[in-house]
Each structure stands twice: as C-alpha cells, then as structure tokens.
C-alpha cells in the first residue's frame, strides 16, 4: 500500500503526463477551449480526490477520461446545452484509445511537434504563435500583418496542415526507429 507521499508523487507523475490528453478529450467534447480549460480545473480536483479508486495496473488516461466525462455532463446540465449523444462519446473513446495506442501520449506528439515547428518560417511560426498562443483574432492579426482576413485564414490552415503532416512523418519515423 502506498503512503500519502508516495501516492501524491504517483498521482503528480501520471497527471502531468496525461494533462494535455485530458485537455484534448475535454476540447473534443465541449468544442470550446475556454470551456475545456474551465472544466479542466474541476477534473483535476476530481482525479486527485478519486485517485485512491484507480488501479495501478489500469490505463490512467482512460480512467481520467471517464472522470472528465462526468464533469462534462454536469457542465451540460448547468449550461442546458446538448453536446454529444452517448454513441458519439463511445466512438470518441474508442478513437482516443486507438490514437494513444498507435501514436502514444500527447507528450510524444508534442516532442514531434516541437521538431516540426522549429522548421517553420518565422512568419508562419508567428502566425501560429499569435493565433494559438496569444488568442489574436484573425482580424487583428491580418491587420498586424497587412494581409486580408481571408488570405490569412487560408495561410494558417495550410501551415497547420503542413505541421500536421510533418508530425505524422516524424511519429512514423520514431516508431520505425524504436
């Protein structure tokens, strides 16, 4: 049996490794980064409270997703909004399981992403930084870059696709080398 201190260490290790995965799951359910971040706070506390229920031989991320789903249901009730039907949730759970099995945790994806972002041009990197890191609107960023909003949307979409393809290649390469 783990002491409190060991339990805390074990939880922090697992939680830190799964943080982005939980956030991705919340985002897939809420369709809103702001809502996902708000719910994440409650999910973190719930995971800590219920950590004693988790079996060490189990899949922490899958368990965390179940807890997260409970919180999302509460959130739906509060906002009186329907998000997804249960069959959609089941399909999402399967897809998350398969993706994690094939491509690893998001920590692995982030390592590949870092490699790909370093290869972007300064302007493309700036576009991603302003849109994702600083929450600039397309309108504000287009004004800043002296471009049309439509042109900026096309560019950002292409950059994102390019990054996605690079990450796929990188992950495949790492898998072959492993």
């Amino acid at each position: 049996m783990m002491s409190d201190s060991d339990g805390e260490k074990a939880f922090l290790k697992l939680f830190t490794g799964a943080r982005d995965d939980i956030m991705a799951y919340l985002y897939s359910l809420t369709l809103s980064h702001a809502d996902a971040e708000d719910i994440f706070q409650d999910v973190s506390l719930l995971l800590w409270e219920k950590f004693g229920d988790w079996r060490p031989d189990g899949n922490f991320r899958a368990w965390a997703r179940k807890m997260a789903w409970n919180k999302v249901q509460n959130w739906r009730r509060l906002k009186s909004e329907a998000v997804w039907d249960p069959d959609v949730i089941a399909a999402l759970d399967r897809a998350f399981d398969e993706e994690e099995k094939e491509r690893g945790a998001l920590a692995d994806v982030k390592a590949a992403l870092e490699h790909c972002l370093a290869r972007l041009s300064a302007v493309n990197r700036l576009i991603l930084h302003r849109l994702y890191g600083e929450n600039n609107s397309y309108k504000a960023l287009a004004r800043f870059l002296n471009r049309s909003v439509r042109g900026l949307k096309v560019t950002s979409h292409r950059v994102r696709e390019k990054v996605g393809e690079c990450v796929e290649r990188r992950l495949a390469l790492e898998k072959r080398q492993a």
């Binding site: 982005d20 980064h33 897809a95 993706e99 491509r103 982030k110 994702y132 600083e134 996605g164």
Partner: peptide, 27 residues
C-alpha cells in the same frame, strides 16, 4: 464520428494536434 470510425480517428488526431499546438504556443 458515431458512424464512421475512420473519420472519428481523424477527428481525434486533429483535436490532439490542436491541443498540443495550443499548449506549446501558450507556454
């Protein structure tokens, strides 16, 4: 998502990439 497993996989892959991208850029 419910009816097409391949589509669900692509959706989840995109959501995961999006989350990783935001996490890194916000950091």
């Amino acid at each position: 998502i419910a009816n097409d497993p391949a589509f669900a996989r692509r959706y989840v892959r995109d959501v995961r990439l999006e989350t990783a991208l935001r996490s890194m850029m916000k950091s």
